[in-house]
């Protein structure tokens, strides 16, 4: 494991499987009457959100609290950021207050990478979504959900997603979820197909480790999981597609299309769903749709990531890391200060 989690592409297969296995351990905590571990007691995590987000922030917050971390929530609205303070100054201000990890959501692609690599701060950086770049914990929770459903909760331990056929449908161009998923699913051995109108696929996609198709119907019968991405209505104003109805007809998932999928195939959605646009209410509410399950799994995954990145040990390990106990914390810091 690295010291930061910036991109799903940075994870090796073994890193990813370790996170998924650790998340299964964490999921058991949720089944207990007292859903709390003492692991991060005395450690401080800040949720630094420059972009509106409800579910991701709450998910991280729940994960941090279940690990007994001290949690600081920082949202850019109404803060010094709206008065022109720079990312660097904001981060340094927070670190001066003694922060061990920064969970950052930012509208600019690369902002978490800059935070982790510019020598501005020492804390571990976890990317909670940056621009149209990456959202690695989303990809991890999606992979976790797929492994549980397609391989099995216990049978899946230690295993990847080799041979599973995953189709991702929708606004790939503007989607950090799609980018993270392509990277991670490829690492885990899955076969990924992206389906979208050509206007919503980036130029340069030919270098990605996946297939690309413009035709949803021919892809569905060959899919073990179909992930529908949110399509913002505003996109049609920029001529990405003609109308909402045409988009739904060609790329929306309804009951007829779902019937073309293999019997045990699942429907996924990172949320928030635009019902009637990329997915009908009937499909969204069906047993095959894992959207709600994904939210629950998100907490387990984020607990696992925090646990592994922060060493899963008490605060003293920061001064004296214990190589056997906390593999993730023993990486020497090579970044320039």
């Amino acid at each position: 494991m690295q010291r930061h989690l910036i991109s799903a592409a940075d994870l090796t297969r073994d890193d990813a499987v370790l996170i998924l296995d650790t998340a299964e351990e964490m999921a058991r905590v949720a089944d207990r009457p007292i859903k709390k571990l003492p692991t991060l007691r005395g450690r401080t995590v800040v949720n630094l959100f420059f972009e509106d987000s409800t579910r991701t922030r709450i998910s991280f917050e729940a994960a941090e609290k279940r690990l007994s971390a001290d949690v600081i929530n920082f949202s850019a609205k109404g803060s010094s950021v709206s008065k022109g303070e720079s990312l660097k100054d904001t981060a340094q201000t927070l670190e001066a207050m003694g922060v061990d990890a920064v969970v950052i959501r930012h509208g600019a692609s690369g902002a978490p990478y800059r935070l982790a690599n510019s020598g501005w701060i020492d804390a571990a950086v976890i990317n909670a979504g940056d621009g149209t770049h990456q959202h690695p914990t989303q990809a991890l929770l999606d992979a976790f959900t797929m492994r549980r459903r397609l391989v099995g909760r216990d049978a899946g331990l230690g295993r990847d997603l080799a041979g599973k056929r995953i189709t991702i449908v929708g606004d790939v161009l503007h989607s950090r979820v799609a980018r993270s998923n392509v990277d991670l699913l490829h690492t885990l051995g899955a076969e990924v197909t992206l389906v979208a109108p050509p206007t919503l696929l980036p130029v340069g996609i030919e270098s990605w480790p996946c297939e690309v198709s413009y035709d949803l119907d021919s892809t569905l019968p060959k899919s073990d999981a179909v992930m529908m991405l949110r399509v913002q209505r505003e996109r049609m104003n920029a001529a990405f597609f003609p109308t909402e109805r045409e988009y739904s007809r060609r790329y929306g998932l309804d009951a007829d299309r779902m019937a073309k999928m293999p019997e045990n195939a699942i429907v996924m959605h990172p949320g928030p769903m635009v019902r009637g646009m990329e997915i009908t209410a009937e499909v969204a509410d069906s047993d095959r749709c894992t959207a709600v399950e994904q939210v629950a799994n998100g907490v387990s995954i984020r607990m696992a990531v925090l646990y592994l990145l922060l060493g899963g040990a008490v605060a003293e390990t920061k001064a004296a890391p214990d190589a056997n106990h906390a593999p993730a914390a023993t990486q020497t810091r090579t970044e320039e200060k």
Binding site: S109, G110, D130, G131, T132, H133, Q134, R176, R179, P202, V203, G204, I205, E206, S207, W208
Partner: peptide, 14 residues
Amino acid sequence: EGVVSAELGLGGWP
């Protein structure tokens, strides 16, 4: 705009 912009998620200048 090209292979790198597609990966980095930065707006392309074709």
